[in-house]
Structure formats: C-alpha cells, structure tokens
Simulated assay, not measured.
Amino acid sequence: MTSPLDTLPKIGAPATRALHAAGYTTLRQLAGVPRSELAKLHGMGPKALGILQAVLEEHNLGLD
C-alpha cells in the first residue's frame, strides 16, 4: 500500500518533469528541501511550489 507521501501531487507536467530530472520522485523527498532550491528548477513556478508546500503541511512537513 502506498502512502500519499510516496507520490507527487498534481502540479503540472513541466514542474513534475523538473522534479524528476532533479531526482525527486516522491513528496517525502521534498520535506526540508529549501524552497529557493526548487524555485531554480526549470519549469517550477510559484503555483507548483505553493501546492507542494500545502500538501506537505497536510502531513506536518514543509519546505525550508
């Protein structure tokens, strides 16, 4: 059985591709990653970052 932390939320294809290219394939891997680091990824915009932060917060986690 998979946990919601084992998958990435729906954030759009460019942002998902950017995360995969950087080696992030699960939501769990993003906990504690600096927001500024993710913002540098080509295809990662403010909307996707906001969605990631919101979903992480649902699990008492977050971006740095």
Rank of each mutant, 00 (worst) to 15 (best):
M1V: 15
T2K: 14
T2L: 15
S3Q: 14
S3E: 14
P4A: 06
D6M: 11
D6G: 07
D6V: 02
T7C: 15
T7V: 15
T7L: 15
L8V: 04
L8Q: 01
L8Y: 00
P9N: 10
K10G: 06
K10Y: 12
I11C: 01
I11S: 00
G12E: 02
G12H: 05
A13E: 14
A13Q: 13
A13K: 11
A13H: 12
P14K: 09
A15N: 00
A15Q: 00
T16L: 04
R17N: 13
R17D: 14
A18F: 09
A18Y: 09
L19R: 00
H20Q: 09
A21N: 12
A21H: 10
A21K: 13
A21V: 13
A21S: 14
G23P: 11
G23S: 07
G23H: 03
G23M: 05
Y24G: 04
T25M: 01
T25A: 01
T25P: 00
T26K: 13
T26F: 05
T26V: 09
L27S: 08
L27Y: 08
L27N: 09
L27C: 08
L27D: 08
R28V: 03
R28G: 00
R28D: 11
R28Q: 12
L30S: 03
L30C: 06
L30N: 03
A31H: 15
A31G: 10
A31K: 04
A31P: 04
G32C: 09
G32T: 07
V33T: 15
V33D: 05
V33R: 10
P34E: 11
P34L: 13
R35V: 15
S36H: 15
S36Y: 11
S36P: 07
E37D: 14
E37G: 04
E37W: 05
L38S: 13
A39N: 05
A39K: 10
A39I: 11
A39G: 10
K40S: 13
K40Y: 04
K40F: 08
L41K: 02
L41D: 03
H42F: 04
H42V: 11
G43N: 06
G43H: 02
G43T: 02
G43L: 07
M44V: 14
G45S: 03
G45W: 03
G45D: 10
P46N: 06
P46Y: 00
K47A: 14
K47S: 12
A48Q: 06
L49A: 01
G50T: 03
G50F: 03
G50Y: 03
I51C: 08
I51L: 13
I51M: 02
L52N: 11
L52T: 11
Q53K: 00
Q53L: 01
Q53P: 01
A54R: 14
V55C: 00
V55D: 01
V55T: 14
V55S: 00
V55L: 01
L56K: 13
L56G: 11
L56H: 10
L56Y: 12
L56D: 11
E57G: 06
E57F: 09
E57A: 13
E58R: 15
H59K: 09
H59V: 08
H59C: 03
N60I: 09
N60Q: 15
L61I: 12
L61D: 11
G62M: 09
G62W: 06
G62H: 09
L63Q: 02
D64C: 00
D64A: 07
